[in-house]
Every structure is written in structure tokens, then in C-alpha cells.
Simulated scan of single mutants.
Amino acid sequence: MSVAAPIGKPSFDSALHAARQAAGPQHYPAGALYAVATPIGNLADITLRALHVLQIADAIACEDTRHTQRLLRSYGIDGRPLIAVHEHNEAEAAQQVLERLRRGERVAYASDAGTPAVSDPGARLAAACAQAGLRVVPLPGASSVTTAISAAGLAGDGRFVFMGFLPAKAGERTAAAQALAQERRAVVLLEAPHRIAALADALAALGERPVTVGRELTKQFEQIATLPCAGLAHWLAADAQRQRGEFVLVLHPFDAAPPEGEGERVLKLLLPELPLKTAVRLAAELTGAPRNVLYGQALALKAAAD
């Protein structure tokens, strides 16, 4: 007879059983590093394959051993050796992991939350494995980047740029935010609670450009809102709770379509002074209009002028 889990504390016994049933028959090569994505907030967002690998790994490398120990115990996994591999010791700690891999061990790597090496440690470790001719097996799963993108309701072609954290120094952060005004694609930013107000001030220069703010994504007090960049600072100040937790921000893309006739107007100014191809290239850069469309318009303007 099993003992019921305390109220409010989930039991993952059935998930561990399902992981063994679903993922167990698959092949897990020895001497490989397994990059394991872990939940960004909600414990139930772990994958079955991740649970299985964490159970069969000979050792688990992790960003913070205390955090990962709590995570493993929440799932009912215990007894695995933990190796600290974080931003301050990653190059040195990687050698310890490589030694285990050369002995034929399976080593899982987990950062504190989300997918390793995405604004988290793990990239140097993976690079060291590749350089040593050792295999890296990625286990996809939770990611704050794709979570925010899926809720932002972006228009356009779906392209985005991941910028992560802007510089911490005020001047560099302001310059970086102003540079984003030239980026037509969607942009994903990350920020910590103690700097979110400063980031909002810097983004105010982007005016009416929409930004989706994701706060505490997947957690109990998750909050998602879309508003103009110019209003972000006011939105944060309106409720002290809004400045708490971890943040993912998605700048929406520009409307790539230029005003009707704008490309042709610019061509009329440039063609008398420049070769046709140069005029088309500059008009495309200035207006964002497709170069092939502008080229056709330029040929028509040339023909009409002749």
C-alpha cells in the first residue's frame, strides 16, 4: 500500500514508471553527455525521457548542486553523484566530466532551469566534449524563450532574434536598447527582477512598438501582458508585484510593409544620381521593400524617363 503524498506536494511515482515504460527501451549510449532540459517553474513540465536519463545517469553535472538535489528529490530520484559545473568553473569542471565519459559513464547535465547553454552554463562543457570526440545527446524540453514566443501572438514570418540579457551598465544598456530600434524581427530579452525597471526605462525609447512581458512563466503567479514599450515602466510601477520574479520580454516585429508608394518615391530621388542597381539597393535598405519589386519599378521609371 502506497503512502499518499502530502497535500500540495505532487507525487511523481507514476511519472517515473511511465518514464521507464516509454523511454526505457530506447538506446542510451555510454560515454555520452546528456544535456537535460529541466522545468522553468512548473515541476510537471519535465519530460519522460529526462526523468529516465536522470535515473540511469552515473553522475549528474549541474549549475547548482543544492538546486538540482531539491529537484531530484521532488521527483523521487536520489543517490546520484552531483558535480558542480557553473559559469565560474565550467572550463575546469569540464575536465572532470570528460574523465567520467572516457571511462564509459553516462553523465547528465542540467542547468538550474530550462535548456542548458541558453543563457545558462553548458556551452563550454558541450564544446569540450565535441573537441574530445565525445558524444553530446540533447534532451529537449522547457525553454523560457519558446514559452514566451508561443504566448506573444507574433505577426509576420515567425523569425526572431534571441538577445538574452542586455548589458548591466546603464550606458551600455541604453545603447543596446536604442540599437534594437533598427531590428525589424522579433527580439527575445531576459531580465532579473532587480533590473527590470531599468530595462523598462531603456526600452521606452522604442515608443509604441509592442512588447509582451512574461513574468514567472509556468509558475503559480504567471503573468503575461502585451503593451507599448513606452508604457512598460508605468505598467511595472502600477503594482509592486509586477517587479518580482524572472522576466522574459518579446519585442514584436516591425510591420515590414513600407507605406504604399514609398519605395517608388525613394527611387525617383535616387535614380537621377546613381546607377540603377545602387539606387535599388539603397531604396531597399531605406524602406524595407523587397529588392525584386524595387528593381521592376526602377526599370519602369527608367523606361518612362527615356
Score class of each variant (00 low, 15 high):
1 M>F: 01
8 G>M: 04
11 S>E: 09
14 S>E: 15
15 A>C: 14
15 A>V: 15
17 H>W: 09
21 Q>G: 00
27 H>G: 00
27 H>S: 15
31 G>W: 13
44 A>L: 12
45 D>F: 04
54 L>I: 12
58 D>A: 06
59 A>K: 06
63 E>L: 02
64 D>W: 09
65 T>I: 00
70 R>P: 13
71 L>T: 12
72 L>D: 02
75 Y>K: 11
75 Y>F: 14
76 G>M: 03
77 I>K: 08
83 I>H: 07
86 H>F: 02
87 E>W: 00
87 E>C: 06
89 N>M: 09
93 A>Y: 10
93 A>H: 07
94 A>S: 06
95 Q>R: 14
97 V>L: 11
107 V>N: 14
120 D>C: 07
120 D>Y: 08
122 G>L: 03
125 L>F: 05
126 A>Q: 14
130 A>R: 15
132 A>F: 03
137 V>H: 06
137 V>N: 05
139 L>I: 15
140 P>R: 09
143 S>Y: 02
144 S>E: 05
145 V>A: 07
153 G>K: 13
154 L>C: 02
162 F>T: 01
163 M>D: 07
172 E>Y: 04
173 R>L: 01
175 A>S: 12
181 A>K: 05
184 R>I: 05
187 V>E: 03
189 L>H: 00
190 L>E: 00
190 L>S: 04
192 A>F: 08
203 L>Y: 06
209 R>P: 00
219 K>C: 04
226 T>M: 00
229 C>Q: 08
232 L>C: 04
236 L>W: 03
236 L>N: 01
240 A>S: 09
243 Q>W: 12
244 R>C: 08
244 R>H: 13
244 R>K: 14
249 L>Q: 13
251 L>K: 08
255 D>L: 12
258 P>D: 04
260 E>K: 15
261 G>I: 03
263 G>Y: 11
264 E>W: 10
278 T>G: 07
285 E>W: 03
285 E>V: 01
286 L>H: 08
287 T>G: 05
290 P>M: 05
292 N>K: 15
293 V>Y: 12
294 L>R: 10
299 L>G: 06
303 A>H: 14
